[in-house]
Simulated assay, not measured.
Amino acid sequence: MGLVKGNVPDDGLGRDPAVCPLQPKLLADLASDDPGPRRAAARALAAYPEAATALCNRLEIEPAPSVRAMILTTLIKIQNPAIAARLAALLRSDDVPLRTAVIEALQEMPDSAALHLRTLLNDPDSDVRIFAVNILGALRHADVPGWLAELIREEPHINVCAAAVDALAEIGDSEALADLDTLRARFASETFMSFAIDTATRRIRGQ
């Protein structure tokens, strides 16, 4: 006769603590001096969505690239709007590798990130606006073409507008054509902008 398994209490999330490591131990390992346990903890915490805040906090101070990568992989797996907001805030970081990794992670969570990135289109820092445009252009989110068309109606910074035009060349639709023509007139003396708008217009028209 086979053994009959009795009732085994879980950890509140439907997991058997006998086979799933306890979260407090993983959180302690996430703060280890050794990057190995930190990386392993970041991987295992994918089973604990409630650990997202701790993972975001660690990401902000994590020096090891491999641990950063694992934290971001886990955050992508458990993605939600709160995680996207924390990552979007890191677009202001002076740490270029971290910022690049965050950009790549946000591109993997379109539904969670889109609205936060739209808010950043109004950020006072033009570099942050450019980062937001570039990420939005890669999201393939249904509302993005309209947001970018709206942006170029009022955006004063030529480099932000250029980034939006490049994105519209990839994802824009016919509704953006009038705004592109208006932008051309606004920057009539800028040859590179006219070229970018011509390219975007041809692609949108399927030429």
Rank of each mutant, 00 (worst) to 15 (best):
R15Q: 11
D16Y: 02
P17H: 00
P17R: 01
A18S: 09
P21Q: 00
P21A: 01
Q23T: 07
K25H: 09
L26G: 04
L26H: 06
L27H: 07
L30Y: 05
L30A: 04
S32I: 08
S32N: 12
D34V: 11
D34G: 10
D34I: 11
P35A: 10
P35V: 09
G36Y: 14
P37W: 09
P37T: 05
R38G: 02
R39W: 06
A40I: 07
A40F: 08
A41N: 10
A42C: 10
A44L: 15
L45F: 10
E50R: 13
A51M: 13
T53F: 09
L55A: 06
C56R: 03
N57T: 07
L59A: 03
I61F: 03
I61W: 02
I61P: 00
I61R: 12
P63A: 01
S66I: 02
V67Q: 08
M70K: 15
T73D: 13
K77W: 02
I78M: 08
I78F: 11
A84L: 08
A85N: 12
R86E: 14
A88C: 11
L90Y: 05
L91F: 12
L91P: 03
R92Q: 13
D94R: 13
V96G: 00
R99C: 12
R99H: 04
A101M: 14
I103G: 01
E104K: 13
E104Q: 13
A105Q: 10
L106N: 01
Q107W: 05
M109D: 01
M109C: 07
M109N: 02
M109Q: 03
P110A: 02
D111R: 14
P124D: 03
D125N: 15
S126P: 05
D127P: 00
D127M: 12
V128M: 09
F131R: 07
